[in-house]
Design a protein around this nucleic acid. Sequence first.
DNA 1: GTCTATAGGCGGATAGAC
DNA 2: GTCTATCCGCCTATAGAC
Lengths: 210, 210
Amino acid sequence: MEQTKPPRADRQLSSEKAEAILEGGMQEFLAHGYAATSMDRVAIAAGVSKATVYSHFQDKEGLFIALIQRLVEGKFRSVFGPANAQVLQTAPEIVLRDLANRLLDTCMNEPQFLNFMRVILGESGRFPQLARAFVRNIEQTSFKRLRQYFTTCPQLKLSDPEATARIFIGTLVHFMIVQEMLHGKDIVPMERARLIENLVKLIINQAEKT
Amino acid sequence: MEQTKPPRADRQLSSEKAEAILEGGMQEFLAHGYAATSMDRVAIAAGVSKATVYSHFQDKEGLFIALIQRLVEGKFRSVFGPANAQVLQTAPEIVLRDLANRLLDTCMNEPQFLNFMRVILGESGRFPQLARAFVRNIEQTSFKRLRQYFTTCPQLKLSDPEATARIFIGTLVHFMIVQEMLHGKDIVPMERARLIENLVKLIINQAEKT
DNA sequence: GTCTATAGGCGGATAGAC
DNA sequence: GTCTATCCGCCTATAGAC
């Protein structure tokens, strides 16, 4: 249903109003999700009238899609993989531990990231194209980078770098989901460092075996 | 806001209507999420009038909470951990592979489970108590069982069974989220068996090292 | 381009008959 | 207990002035 609409990318970055609307829309949509967000509140958050919102974006769905697309390709694009200077000289143990810490740090330090993922997951049924954009821009990117590192690092000889990358990322993302998104910190407590230590050891050990 | 309301569990299983309402509510809420579901449609799906819905449940929020609580404690309680006859004689390799396959099978064969998780994740901001109930009844349970197996299996001597259980479950849940929930199958394809094979090997290898 | 004002409809919740 | 009918507010979207 929502795929049939024309892309309607904002033609120019012309008006600052368009920017304000996207900013206000982000605040509201990330906080309340798609259905629970009203265009009135978006307009107020953006500091413009509702009619102005509709002059820049076709409708609620169009604004939402434009906004999330933008976040997926911009603000949150590199959350899972900060452009790390490839330190092939450093021990993999340290590289992997740092990488895991940076991934979790970036997620937690970007205060809106948790809400962003909530919306992506929650609306993945109604907006499959946004879910796919998330996979392409964020998940796939992080898989590729880690796979790349596993393949090129001389100390690591993994039989399946791709699958190992999935295990690494999956463990960390699930950790974030349970502890933070689902408020599981007090129910199933687990030190971040402890999980990472075990995860890294698992991989290093595997590399030595092969 | 939503925690202050009285529990208002349906006093008795008296009327079959209450059952029909919960059934209809499940259909609607799992398909569209909380905000996008209307009480009119719940009533229609349940085959009763809207007034009858309100005579059994305080309001929309009350129905939603009662419904999700019920799913968390019943229908989907054991999705992540089918009561497996502890086969301590069987090789851990096989036990773990079967366990992983059953976990993913159960998620995928229960057709509403994906929607259920979508709702839990999507509404975890507005309904934190439901997210916590999910963690207690589903995540924690599966951690415990796996930890238990790791601890008691004679062939497995893991230095940190709890953390290893997290890695195991996390890898599989994240796999399900990316491939199925976020429609990533075609973008980042990965054979289920391949991932599981690598995951199991990682753990077995670790056990042998220690 | 941007505003105010409003149309038109749907949604949550209830009154009151039976 | 269950229904029909209805209240009233909020929501999406637009008309028309400036």
